[in-house]
Design a protein around this nucleic acid. Sequence first.
DNA 1: TGTATTTGTGGAATCGATTACACATTTCCT
DNA 2: AGGAAATGTGTAATCGATTCCACAAATACA
Lengths: 329, 329
Amino acid sequence: MLTIKEIAERANVSRTTVSRVLNNSGYVSEEAKRRVLKVIEETGYIPSENAKSLRTKKTKVIGVILPKISTETSSRLVKGIDEILAKGGYQILLANTNLKPEKEIEYLKLLKSRHVDGIILSATNVNRSLIEEIYQLKIPFVTVGQYISGLANVVFDDYQAAKDMVQLLIKKGHKRIAFIGVDESDRAVGYLRKNGYYDAMKEAGLPVEDSWVQKGVFNSESGYESMKEIIEISDNRPTAVAAVTDRLAIGAMQFIQQMGLSIPEDMAFAGMGASELSRYITPSLTTIDFSMEDAGREAAALLLEQISREMNQEEIRTINYRLLERASI
Amino acid sequence: MLTIKEIAERANVSRTTVSRVLNNSGYVSEEAKRRVLKVIEETGYIPSENAKSLRTKKTKVIGVILPKISTETSSRLVKGIDEILAKGGYQILLANTNLKPEKEIEYLKLLKSRHVDGIILSATNVNRSLIEEIYQLKIPFVTVGQYISGLANVVFDDYQAAKDMVQLLIKKGHKRIAFIGVDESDRAVGYLRKNGYYDAMKEAGLPVEDSWVQKGVFNSESGYESMKEIIEISDNRPTAVAAVTDRLAIGAMQFIQQMGLSIPEDMAFAGMGASELSRYITPSLTTIDFSMEDAGREAAALLLEQISREMNQEEIRTINYRLLERASI
DNA sequence: TGTATTTGTGGAATCGATTACACATTTCCT
DNA sequence: AGGAAATGTGTAATCGATTCCACAAATACA
């Protein structure tokens, strides 16, 4: 590998001068500059970012921690993040936790050891030890999807979105509405959306039967199972189902269709997330578009702000959502 | 930031000894080791990977260049790559070209400047200048999806897959089969798959009319337009359509359904890529599963081999595909 | 003309780790 | 007992850049 030293020798100047040419800083005569650029051109010299970082303490790399790498949500988020970061000359260092909480702390440390200029965390379960670890890092930090006090956050109004969804079903005339959620340790998706459901029902004066409320995980199979459970144990069969993700809704729809019932006549469905699938399945699924790309862009912009301000300050940006009314209700 | 020097001072040893403890190398007395570990524990010291890399010439980072960041293909590929790399303690540095060829060379240089230990390139259009740039890099390198001589490649048998697909349609009794492809500058998807189509037809002794062969880009809208074109300008309307991606097929199906025709009775469809969508749309789409995750795993494994062998050697791994016969034919 | 300022350049320290080498002490083996 | 081998530790060079500082030459200003 060619180094700045060799370039300096070949151009008959000092390393200092080469560095000045490279960074367009300080005084350099046209003559010297020309010689240096010529040698760089001829040799194809590429300066080591690594050595540079060691000295300057800036890497132009942002760590992005994701709970899962190949979901539509994640990839849209990353797309938005990359869009903004690329403009600023930053690159993304990926860290995939595969939903394992212990990995989150591990990666936090790893990213710190790599001196990333900032971190964006797309969190699911937020626990105390994770939060403490983040505070200790002292690295510009932005979370997406879950609120953590004292940090910069990009969040969604999960509560209101779920409530809107259920209210739409109510407006459509449904009175017995079931709910398929996820574990409440996921505060945004599990806890807040569930509350949105309960409050919408309560405000409309509608009763909720325990058997209508099921809990699954993030895949369609568990939506299928939850639906089955609802049908099997309910005395009073619901006429509509609100699920916290499109996948859960789609799994549930499959069960209903396999029973020979029709959607939305026998059972109406609503999901959340606006997956591509939701548009193309039959019937198309009513859902909520959280615009993950916007969230990504916002998170990146917020992070760059924190970096330029050289501080970690609480700030909350709420991303707008859109309710997409489709054939499933 | 805490440095190794401070740890050494606090533990009353030299930096050398601290380094030895950190890397489990050389001779260190139990006593010294204990003291060092205690100080590290107390202070939460995290060694700088950056400084380490500068000295050791290894970063444990792999650059991954993608044509587009948020497609199902890319995200599955990255998932497979990450699965293997994470085991080896490597991380992924993302580079998204957004289908702009000039970005490919730019990122190649950027990744080199960051001293990544290896690069995986998911290429679409491969041109001479790109190839030359790659040869010059002298960094362990693996391409996915397109063959480049002299390098390690993970490829698909695009030709045979397309041929199989068309032959399946022929076996189903179709004689007039249309084809929706993409530009041939994408050798794998554009050129090879098209050849597979032509050869399957020729070998079956079936004629191909020019109006049946259309070219689109990678989205469903252009599949829609291509189908429209086929219907409008064909004297002899085909009874089946083979498309080089699921998206193109899905767009084409939409046009046919909007015309009030039914699938597969009036027109049969086959796509390629096994997107999630293909499973859930109605009717479900016959397609080819190229197992991108396998490809990712294979690419990562191949790259790690090249790294450990310290050489860049031509090697070709062909990923198996599966033909998924579904309701659309 | 003499002093102040601007311009141009390079020597050498620095960033935070690893590692070759030297040296001292202990243990082993015949 | 006495030399060889193993164990333990530290000094200093090194990786490849940036940057402080000193200094010389050219230019401006009074």
